[in-house]
């Protein structure tokens, strides 16, 4: 098994274990989405109109929730030191960790989203499209969050700081994610352009974020 695959599988196993973040993130997603009808009222027409937005916001917050610990656990138990002491670039290691985070945390949200869309009175026909936008856009959230996770490790502060640093950067993802999902439900704009841009955002952040995150960790060495 190659080194990166070993890291990916290790992180994945740790995340889905009891005490790992994956199940908690999914639960959080469920609760956030369930809270919205209590806040705006059980108006089904309104809920179906803002349904994609709620699902996207929930996914954004739920994926952030566990990002805080993405690198911090390895920094605290000394694993990060050993991860850095190989010819393998730190960028690649961080990318593998981010992919493991996406698989363990965001993929369940993608799978859960049609069920929650049902609660929000979103049309059946739109559910695959919403899940598709989440699948295409959540990698961008994970990778942008990776930068924040690296910065908070380098600063030895986590939690709220990570959210403050990361959330403004996720605005484009949110815009195109919700727009693509809405395009299917209400129109009139076509689904293609926002969805393509969403994919582009994910790809671009997958390239930029590991570089920035590795730089943050190296510069935070002390």
């Amino acid at each position: 098994m190659s080194a990166l695959a070993a890291l990916y599988w290790r992180d994945l196993r740790l995340a889905v274990r009891a005490g790992g973040g994956a199940a908690i993130a999914a639960l959080f997603f469920l609760i956030v989405v369930a809270l919205v009808p209590f806040a705006v009222g059980p108006d089904l027409a309104l809920l179906s109109r803002i349904g994609p937005a709620i699902l996207w916001l929930g996914a954004l917050l739920a994926s952030l929730l566990t990002l805080d610990r993405l690198i911090a656990v390895d920094a605290e138990d000394g694993s990060l030191d050993l991860l850095m002491m190989t010819p393998m670039p730190l960028e690649a290691a961080l990318a593998a960790k981010a992919l493991a985070h996406w698989t363990s945390t965001c993929l369940p949200l993608v799978i859960l989203s049609p069920v929650l869309a049902l609660l929000l009175n979103v049309e059946f026909s739109a559910m695959p499209a919403i899940a598709l936008t989440l699948a295409a856009g959540t990698p961008a959230l994970t990778f942008i969050g990776l930068i924040g996770a690296a910065l908070s490790v380098a600063l030895r502060r986590g939690g709220v700081l990570l959210a403050v640093l990361v959330l403004p950067f996720t605005i484009p993802v949110l815009i195109f994610g919700v727009a693509a999902a809405n395009a299917v439900i209400v129109g009139p704009a076509p689904f293609g352009p926002p969805f393509t841009i969403l994919c582009a955002l994910s790809l671009a952040s997958a390239v930029i974020a590991p570089v920035a995150a590795a730089a943050a960790i190296r510069h935070g060495l002390e």
Binding site: R13, L14, E76, D77, G78, S79, D81, L82
Partner: peptide, 10 residues
């Protein structure tokens, strides 16, 4: 080092 780099869950 002082840290053992072990994952308690594994």
């Amino acid at each position: 080092g002082h840290l053992d780099a072990l994952k308690p869950g594994l």
